[in-house]
């Protein structure tokens, strides 16, 4: 059992949970995630990135957006209550090195998984530029935390309600083109469509670009193959080979379509959830 120690709401749909999970807190590295299950009999297994951990206190931090049946159910949990199953840490840790100037591009909830990566990049002495983007001001998360780590932080929103009115690709392209010192590496975490265009933006400049993929998962151990993606010519499993891959090799179009596999069932589950039934 993993007791919810602290619950905060970061924006209308975004929650930060600090949960008891001593072994995971001890072993996890930036870039890794867990699988969470709210009900052992009928619940589904959903992946969430470990946003932070405190090995001394034996806690991990998860930041998630309530988008569907399971995340909405998770959001109803109160402090003191517990999650019955958390498996992890899963996936390959981020490959983080001192390379010089690194740009971290976060879209929406992507700021949560980016945070531990940015922390580590900073610790290794990289120059750090962070671009945080969201649809509107209320959806920006972790802006202050990231600002504390970054040499430069740029805020963009689709509607201009905070920072510059632009997509993240605009400042990213400017940086690729004219930054001094030049950009040596880019990390992008956010909605698939954003990662796709960010990767397209850096491609002509041949700047190494790491993306963190969010495919549909079941077991998280490499057993089912449901999380597979096409990377270059190869099929890879995101849960064990990833979640990070070379953004210039990912077949984003196929991945986005695979993410829609259960659209119809998910919409039904959300409705049932709203009406107060169990999904």
């Amino acid at each position: 059992m993993h007791t919810l120690i602290k619950k905060e709401q970061l924006s209308e749909q975004v929650y930060r949970f600090e949960l008891q999970a001593p072994l995971i807190a001890q072993g996890r590295k930036p870039g890794q995630f867990v699988l969470v299950q709210t009900d052992l009999e009928f619940g589904e297994r959903i992946p969430l990135t470990i946003a932070d951990a405190n090995p001394e206190a034996g806690t991990i931090t998860l930041i998630f957006q309530a988008v569907g049946a399971t995340t909405q159910k998770l959001a109803t949990l109160q402090e003191g209550q517990a999650i019955p199953a958390i498996l992890g840490p899963l996936g390959q840790p981020s490959h983080i090195e001192r390379v010089g100037h690194v740009v971290c591009v976060c879209g929406g909830i992507g700021a949560a998984p980016m945070y531990p990566i940015a922390q580590e990049l900073r610790r290794l002495g990289n120059r750090l530029t962070v671009i945080v983007g969201a649809r509107s001001a209320e959806l920006l998360i972790l802006e202050d935390e990231l600002r504390a780590l970054a040499d430069d932080l740029l805020v963009v929103t689709d509607d201009g309600s905070a920072g510059r009115k632009a997509l993240v690709t605009e400042p990213l392209e400017e940086l690729c083109r004219e930054s001094t010192p030049p950009v040596d590496q880019v990390f992008v975490i956010g909605p698939p469509i954003m990662m796709k265009f960010a990767a397209e933006t850096t491609r002509p400049f041949a700047i190494p670009t790491v993306v963190s993929l969010n495919t549909i998962m079941v077991d998280g151990t490499g057993m089912c193959g449901g999380c597979r993606v096409t990377i270059g010519e190869e099929t890879r499993f995101v849960c064990v080979d990833g979640p990070e891959f070379d953004g210039h090799l990912v077949d984003f179009d196929n991945m986005m379509k695979r993410l829609q596999s259960y659209k119809h069932q998910e919409a039904n589950a959300r409705d049932i959830c709203r009406q107060g039934g169990t999904p």
Partner: peptide, 30 residues
């Protein structure tokens, strides 16, 4: 093989058996 609707038997059977997806009314796994 990576089209939508192609599954390994492991995935299909795990969804149905372990995750109980055959019980459409109660299981959250689609």
């Amino acid at each position: 093989e990576n089209l939508v609707g192609v599954f390994s038997a492991n995935e299909f059977l795990t969804r149905s058996n372990l995750m109980k997806a055959y019980n459409r009314d109660e299981a959250a796994t689609p």
